Computed example of a mutant assay.
Amino acid sequence: MASSQHPSFPIRPYPSSISGPSQQPPQSSTRGKPLGFSQSHAPAAREAARIERDRLDRERQQVAQKSTHAQSQAPSALSQLADEQRDEVNEAFALFDLDKDGLIDYHEFKVALKALGFDLPKPELLDLLTSHGIAPPSYQPPPGSSGQHVVPASRLHLTLNSFQQIASELILARDPRDEILRAFDLFDTEGKGMISLDDLRRVARELGEGLEEEELSAMIEEFDLEGKGGVGRDEFIGICMN
């Protein structure tokens, strides 16, 4: 009787291409490195970047030095005022420096500018104090505040030099017509819109000018182009501008 057992197959001496793992090619040791780049180039690139930064820094310093020099050579705003205008600025500061400590606070600053013809809103006044003001010697930071405490703008004070700078810049930026109309209002205190003979007589008396009545009348008649008995705003501006 023939045997029911099948002969066994021989074991393959190599892995099957179906069930066994596939063979991977060996990894190159240069994988992940950019082609044509050598690590020896890195120090040279860093040195070139440093040289470029130094060059840019030198250029910025030269520009800053030129700007500072130009500012130092530029005339101050105060020096561009007429002597009478400089006197008005100094008198306004002295008048409202009530405690005579060489400083004016927010309220004194406001009325001093108003005396010069500038009625600035509160936000603008605070901006000027922020950019030009200093903390007064008597100021004490609130308890528990850090070393980085910022003094509120409303508590800052102005020195005479700072006030002169601010007032001078405002005067130089003012329209000449505004100055003329301000002078007109000194004559026309009642807001009539014209300077009458009575207005002219009063101002002459206040200034101590010994003008005769005939002279005052002649001045009104000369400039009263419309024959209304006084000098109007436009006529007064024309007199001062010509």
Rank of each mutant, 00 (worst) to 15 (best):
A70E: 09
D87F: 01
D185A: 14
P13D: 13
V150I: 13
A218Y: 01
T189D: 15
K192H: 09
S79P: 04
S28M: 06
Y14Q: 12
V89H: 06
E124P: 00
G232R: 10
D199H: 06
I51L: 14
A49I: 03
P25Y: 07
D101R: 03
I18V: 14
D224N: 12
P142A: 10
L56A: 14
P121W: 02
F93L: 04
G227V: 01
F9T: 08
A74S: 15
A153K: 01
G36P: 02
P25N: 12
L78K: 10
L160K: 02
C240E: 08
S72T: 09
G193P: 06
R46L: 15
P75S: 10
H41L: 12
P141Q: 10
I195D: 02
G229T: 00
K100N: 14
A115W: 00
S16K: 05
R58C: 12
G238W: 02
P143I: 01
S16W: 00
R31F: 07
D178G: 12
P176W: 02
H69D: 14
D97E: 02
P21K: 15
S131F: 04
V203L: 12
D198W: 00
S22V: 06
P121V: 05
S168L: 06
K192N: 08
Q24K: 14
S17Q: 11
T130V: 00
P143T: 00
P7I: 08
E190F: 03
L225S: 12
S76D: 11
